[in-house]
Amino acid sequence: MFIINCPFCGERDQSEFSAGGEAHIVRPKQPTELTDDEWADFLFMRKNIKGIQFERWNHSHGCRKWFNVIRDTSNDKIHAVYKMGEKPPSN
């Protein structure tokens, strides 16, 4: 069980958070313009990376804010956290 450094509350136990899957999948602004394939891509297709993954977490038993986490899915090591709308920290 990891510790997540909520950008709003600080370090808290993983059990306070909910995972929200891959980050930076932007909901299309004009869904009706998309082909079925493109829509399916948004809806279901995932990188599901083994290694450094950008993902969303929600501090659901805390401030209830969504934010982004950079985590290595091969060892669960968290490299960075950053708020929604912010650019991922480089390096």
């Binding site: 899957g21 399916a40 891509d41 995932r46 990188k47 599901n48 990376i49 083994k50």
Partner: peptide
């Protein structure tokens, strides 16, 4: 569990989470 890893090698994405 590693299906997506192989899929990524082939340049495709799958509707999977591991």
């Amino acid at each position: 569990g590693h299906s997506s890893v192989i899929a990524n090698m082939a340049g495709i994405r799958l509707p999977l989470e591991s």
